[in-house]
Design a binder for these strands. Sequence first.
DNA 1: CTACATTTGCTAACACTGTTAACAAGGAGT
DNA 2: ACTCCTTGTTAACAGTGTTAGCAAATGTAG
Lengths: 196, 196
Amino acid sequence: MSNHHENLKNQIVCQSWMIIQEEGWQALSIRKIATAIGYSLPVVYKYFSSKDDLIEHFSKEGFLKLTEDLKNSIAEEHDSKQQLNLLAESYWNFAFNHRKHYEIMFGLGIPTCEKINSHVEMQDTCLVFENTIQQVIAQHQNTNLDVHLKLKTFWSILHGLVAIELLTNSEESASPSLILKDAIEGFILSLTNKKA
Amino acid sequence: MSNHHENLKNQIVCQSWMIIQEEGWQALSIRKIATAIGYSLPVVYKYFSSKDDLIEHFSKEGFLKLTEDLKNSIAEEHDSKQQLNLLAESYWNFAFNHRKHYEIMFGLGIPTCEKINSHVEMQDTCLVFENTIQQVIAQHQNTNLDVHLKLKTFWSILHGLVAIELLTNSEESASPSLILKDAIEGFILSLTNKKA
DNA sequence: CTACATTTGCTAACACTGTTAACAAGGAGT
DNA sequence: ACTCCTTGTTAACAGTGTTAGCAAATGTAG
């Protein structure tokens, strides 16, 4: 079993991805997939129980890739503050180099799929952020800070910048931008500065 | 002319809004609208050239309301730094009290409509932010700062926090949150602190 | 090798969607 | 009475996600 099985599932994913990249999420339809893989409609349903199921696959795939990129970006850096900068840069690059992925992951103008948030793959991404933030906090003996809160703030800054950029500059822009560096610098300060 | 005309257009908007609030954006269909207003399909097209056109109406309506809320929030406050805090709080409240509006305005999981960004109503919202930021900068003689850049940062922080909140805490949460205050505080510092 | 069972894939349909063409009824103006 | 135009209709086109029912091929047991 399952050689052809796996192969066909890959075919579906692969062809779907082509459609998405060339025509956007809106254009992705089961019928189009079916003809692309050279089979009839119901075959697709043998491998994905619904269209949402297929879309969720790409969302998970995106978080997997993002987590990998993030991990790689800090692998050879041992200063945890500098790691935060690298994470931010890596996050930004992911969003722009894998735009379509980012779109489903954070629901920016997608057909169906209501709540594809909070699966395991996303929690892994959180962990990468959290660990690094935790290190910076520990390093500066700022144990009064709430890591979860800071994680949320960090992620919000990143996503906010990316989303506004993606929404306004529809087509251009790529480099991590001054704003990003500035914002992250401020965030790091909020971790290292001691106050009341 | 146009008494009945205006009336029917209002009916369409009104009934559409009911559907959206009760069943979400996904459930909004021209047919459903038609039966809701007691007319047949093509009537809807007399008042809105397409579904996107109708959706865009709500997007504009949202930005109008947001701009109004923002302006009101700072009307009786003369300290421009404090105004920024009020703007942030007001923005947050708008996003949570007018969730469905916020969803289309920033494309969080919507059916059709590719690029409903950058219409005039949105630029008005920008202006409110920009004016206040400009004031803070002037007040601290930090004229080397780029207002547009700071505007983008401010908006990004706000949207980022809101979006992450809306995506994760699907149903709960309402109060402007500690993170928001913290983040805005940091932003204000970046406006008032002088450096290289 | 036959006979049954299972998988594999198909066609066709259901219930929807946005959008538009073609047409019927009513009132206004000449 | 005869146009003209607005107002509204029905019916259709071209799509969508999804599923039921059936045919053919494939594998397994006797």
